[in-house]
């Protein structure tokens, strides 16, 4: 605690007062200013790398098919499995003679739409369920037993069963994935919310007579959101993989519609003659999922209000742009730090 002693200057001038009147605390002291989100983000290489990569994927997926007027459904049986760069096909064509690039990019759209919708739906539903369960004891038992039941069934199997029962279509796929994975989010939010509810600041709020809604909205929700945002990015990545798996098995996006899972399935039959199909679809999956996972990892560091700067690493991006604050690394006396003890 560096509140009371006034700053000792380099000349070793002793503090002027001797435990007498209260000084205006903080007047003489310089608190390290909290770094802005952007400056912290720039120093966080996983976050920047993941974000840029994901943006590139998203931009290509939405803009390129539109600009090049690509049609993923146009069949040309005379030109099946043509190689890279052949006329009209930048990445070749598949076993029906459809443009592979078009199918990959439109498939990316499908994947991103499914992933994003599932992530948002699961985030919202999971939060509502989790917070209700944490705050109201009776609901807790009911909701959590339902969640336990859902989690007891293997996720992919349940998703296949649901998708099959509802009929193959993208909205149904989103619904199935949401139902299957919401319990995980609800559990996570509930455990975090329970931890927040036992914190002193929630007690402080209760002592003041705060109603449940106030505590939930002002205290529990903001403190849960940090965990949730991180989780949602991972869910995003997870949903893309699961979507591909379901489509590959034929229970996801219905076939002629392009999707990475469908392309993988089509490519399976011709893997020896034309491995590019499998490789390209897999690579797209890997890159997108990697981008999202990096993004989530970086977010985890960013959203924590406590981690404002005890990290000695400097970000790759800030090094690339030569903005690493080498010059700012001046030694300073210990007393301006909150605590230097381990």
């Amino acid at each position: 605690m560096h509140e009371e002693p006034p700053q000792v200057h380099d000349s070793g001038r002793p503090p002027a007062r001797e435990g007498t009147a209260i000084m205006a605390p903080g007047a003489a002291e310089s608190l390290p200013a909290r770094r802005s989100i952007w400056s912290r983000a720039r120093h966080n290489s996983p976050f920047m790398f993941g974000a840029v990569l994901f943006l590139i994927v998203a931009l290509i997926a939405t803009l390129v098919p539109f600009i090049l007027q690509l049609d993923p459904y146009a069949v040309d049986t005379s030109r099946r499995l043509s190689g890279i760069g052949e006329e009209g096909y930048l990445l070749g064509s598949d076993d029906f003679g459809r443009d592979l690039l078009a199918r990959l990019l439109v498939g990316a759209q499908t994947s991103l739409i499914v992933g994003a919708s599932v992530a948002v739906l699961r985030g919202v539903l999971g939060t509502v369920i989790g917070i209700c369960a944490s705050y109201f004891r009776v609901l807790d038992h009911i909701l959590m037993r339902v969640c336990d039941g859902l989690m007891a069934i293997p996720a992919i199997l349940l998703a296949i069963a649901l998708a099959a029962a509802l009929g193959p279509s993208v909205p149904n796929l989103i619904l199935a994935l949401t139902v299957v994975f919401t319990p995980n989010v609800a559990r996570l939010v509930r455990s975090r919310a329970l931890a927040v509810l036992s914190e002193t600041f929630v007690e402080a709020s209760r002592v003041q007579g705060a109603p449940p809604l106030h505590i939930i909205l002002r205290h529990v929700l903001p403190n849960t959101l940090s965990v949730l945002t991180v989780q949602v990015t991972f869910i995003f990545a997870d949903s893309i993989i699961t979507e591909a798996a379901l489509s590959f098995l034929g229970a996801g996006v219905p076939t002629p519609e392009p999707s990475w899972g469908n392309i993988l399935n089509d490519g399976r039959g011709v893997i020896l003659q034309f491995p590019l199909m499998t490789v390209a679809a897999s690579l797209s999956l890997v890159v997108t999922v990697l981008a999202l996972n990096l993004l989530g990892d970086g977010l985890r560091d960013l959203v924590d209000p406590r981690s404002s700067g005890d990290d000695t690493r400097r970000g790759m991006v800030s090094r690339l742009f030569g903005r690493a604050p080498r010059t700012a690394r001046r030694p300073r006396p210990a007393a301006t730090e909150e605590s230097t003890e381990p």
């Binding site: 600041f201 007690e203 402080a204 003041q208 007579g209 106030h214 205290h219 903001p222 209000p305």
Partner: peptide, 27 residues
């Protein structure tokens, strides 16, 4: 009520002004 541990008795997502204003907003 003044709590023992000042480190944990404030919501880290609220500003000091919000923390002090909280009882007034509640009532």
């Amino acid at each position: 009520f003044v709590f023992q541990d000042p480190a944990s008795s404030f919501n880290p997502f609220m500003s000091i002004a919000d923390c002090i204003a909280e009882p007034m907003r509640i009532h």
